[in-house]
């Protein structure tokens, strides 16, 4: 069987298992065709369970909010619509939030997709590259006249998630040790997700703080970053970001240093 024929056999196998027509394909298998068909269904069950398991691991709060039956069905449909794009199932789910946003059965849960976005941001933060701690000693040496030209580098694990819903309250209320009742029912959230000491953490940001983080992410110099001219003191925010390990380096002007 040359590779071309092997490829055809494998494609037919995949179609029989995922497309659901095992009857015709069973003829290419040894033994009783009826048994072979039931055996193909074992593969189908395993593939769907693997996909759902990967999503369940990445989106535990969504799974808790909707319950097992809803989640399994959503996972199955999502797998049909957006099958895993690579061999690493840990990456399956990047577009699950968008799927949920358009999923008719989730229409009554308008915050669900945003909770999923927050959970995927958590996963991305977990797997992001490591980075050195901010060099405070070097930072202290930047002359005062140069400080407005400072550009900070955000840690690779920093993500910012904005929602019209109180997604952080919902997320916190649905952690394993909580009963699911959020401390807020309405109002927007801007959530910063970051990794410190190898743990992913989440915190709520005020709108001006979130705008400031956006500006830093774009590589803006401090003097041009958000909040300027609004009577808002960015230095406290900067100190908070630095203290929590959200910054991992800086440069002055165009010159890249620490």
């Amino acid at each position: 069987m040359p590779a071309r024929l092997l490829g055809r056999l494998q494609s037919e196998f995949a179609e029989a298992v995922l497309g659901g027509d095992g009857r015709a394909f069973a003829r290419r298998l040894a033994g009783d065709p009826g048994l072979a068909q039931r055996r193909l269904a074992l593969y189908r069950d395993a593939i769907l369970a693997n996909r759902a398991g990967a999503l369940r691991a990445a989106f535990p709060v969504v799974a808790r909010l909707v319950g097992d039956a809803f989640f399994e069905e959503a996972a199955r449909l999502y797998g049909e619509e957006s099958p895993p794009a690579c061999a690493d199932l840990n990456r399956h789910g990047a577009t699950f939030p968008a799927f949920l946003a358009a999923y008719p059965h989730a229409a009554g849960l308008p915050w669900l997709a945003d909770v999923a976005r927050l959970e995927w941001a958590w996963q991305e933060s977990l797997a992001a590259g490591d980075a050195p701690d901010l060099d405070f000693a070097a930072l202290a040496l930047v002359p005062e006249g140069e400080q407005a030209r400072l550009r900070f580098r955000l840690h690779p694990g920093v993500r910012l998630v904005r929602s019209a819903w109180p997604v952080l309250s919902i997320w916190e209320a649905n952690q394993p040790d909580r009963d699911g009742t959020p401390d807020r029912d309405e109002g927007p959230d801007a959530v910063i997700v970051w990794r410190q000491a190898q743990r992913v953490r989440l915190a709520r940001l005020a709108p001006a703080e979130a705008a400031f983080v956006d500006d830093l992410a774009r590589g803006a110099a401090i003097g041009a970053a958000g909040g300027a001219g609004e009577g808002w003191d960015f230095s406290a925010t900067l100190a908070r970001l630095a203290a929590h390990g959200m910054l991992c380096g800086f440069s002055v002007g165009d010159s890249a240093t620490a």
Partner: peptide, 25 residues
């Protein structure tokens, strides 16, 4: 085993047909 074909990922350890050609492959 194989677990993907034509860019389609099944993420499961699937058996091969055992023949001389597949062995060489």
């Amino acid at each position: 085993c194989w677990s993907s074909i034509g860019g389609r990922h099944l993420n499961e350890l699937l058996p091969l047909p055992y023949s001389e050609e597949v062995l060489e492959h």
